[in-house]
Design a protein around this nucleic acid. Structure first.
Lengths: 202, 202
DNA sequence: TCAATTATTGACCAGTCGGTCAAATACATA
DNA sequence: TATGTATTTGACCGACTGGTCAATAATTGA
């Protein structure tokens, strides 16, 4: 019927996500978005709406991709026992800093600090994302796999204890991301990871 | 010799600190700073330099006031035993949200995310502040007060274990601040606090 | 009282911000 | 091939950005 769009919307969001992820909402200008996407300002407006709409789509995309990856890492028994999966999650934070000099951190965490307090749309995506993360950790913690119980000595937890510990691990995880962004020595992140794992195994 | 300054520099920094604290670096404009301080743009420049210099002074002031308050809370035995002092620190995060609807969070934490990765001056203040916090927690954890040891049953920790646990508690603390900003239910923050305290007492 | 020195003031700057729009363009259908 | 429709384009907008500066005012020591 009409002229078709010359670009793939999802691919553009994926690119733009990286800009907001790295620079935050206020720190990102249309000039940045144009440079990254190769599109014209008018095209961005026509396809997605204003800057805030673009930001929310980018954040939702992060949630669907990266947060979801974390959730499946935590839930899938193929990745080892519950403690090993949680350790892998924490290890990923350290690896990102060590190998890739990644200072972008976690977009959800960045958004929590820079936009959630002033934008309800951001707040909603962030709290839902944190909620799913929390639930995944809780699931992992309460998991009792009878066939592995002996071999790995993971103490099983009552439901309320699992909830408490899940909240604690969430806090540790996001705290580690903040510390990584802050630029603390890697050793401090490793210490935090070790302490958590020792606690879980003990 | 010459015309004296009509305002108190420290008082102005204290006011401006609140603006940056709430809105971040990019989110704060000179218009905001002028409205908060009542000064003219030229006066701010003459007295402090550019926006970044102002931000760094505000952050340094936060470090000297608020972070230092946290450090003394952790170190001073008048505030109870080590676990009680750490609990008070975590409780303060929850209270700030519950009673004052405070969404500013921790300025050091906000700065870690929004400016530390792109500004070395910010990174330095933040890492030094985190370092002092870490040291204070470590001191509290390794503290063995013989007269109280029996009464309160705080397990004493070896130096390396105290370092690990200190890093873990730091992460939990900053994570809780992120979660508070994100707008998670208060119960989740209380769960995290409970889990940490149970861990320390166990 | 006068000179030297510093602070205050508000007008001013170029550049950039997010956002709009009408014209040109390209496609699918008829 | 003609027509209707959606996309692309780049010029354009007013508002605001961080920052400057020359004129004016206030103070102290001489």
């Amino acid at each position: 019927m009409a002229r078709p769009r010359a670009f793939d919307k999802d691919a553009v969001i994926a690119v733009i996500k990286n800009v907001f992820w790295e620079k935050g909402f206020e720190g990102t200008s249309y000039t940045d978005l144009i440079a990254a996407s190769g599109l014209h300002k008018g095209s961005l407006y026509q396809a997605f709406g204003d800057k805030r709409a673009l930001y929310l789509r980018a954040l939702a995309d992060y949630d669907a991709m990266e947060v979801e990856a974390g959730v499946s890492l935590l839930i899938n028994p193929d990745n080892g026992n519950a403690v090993e999966r949680i350790e892998a999650l924490l290890e990923a934070v350290i690896t990102a800093v060590r190998n890739h000099k990644d200072r972008r951190g976690c977009f959800l965490c960045n958004a929590a600090i820079d936009q959630a307090p002033v934008d309800p749309g951001t707040e909603e995506i962030v709290t839902l994302g944190l909620g799913r993360m929390h639930h995944a950790i809780e699931m992992a913690l309460s998991e009792v796999d009878p066939s592995r119980q002996h071999k790995n000595r993971i103490p099983s937890r009552s439901a309320p204890a699992a909830k408490n510990t899940a909240s604690q691990i969430m806090a540790c995880y996001f705290g580690m991301r903040v510390m990584a962004k802050a630029g603390v020595p890697l050793s401090m992140l490793e210490q935090a990871r070790d302490a958590i794992i020792i606690q879980l195994k003990g």
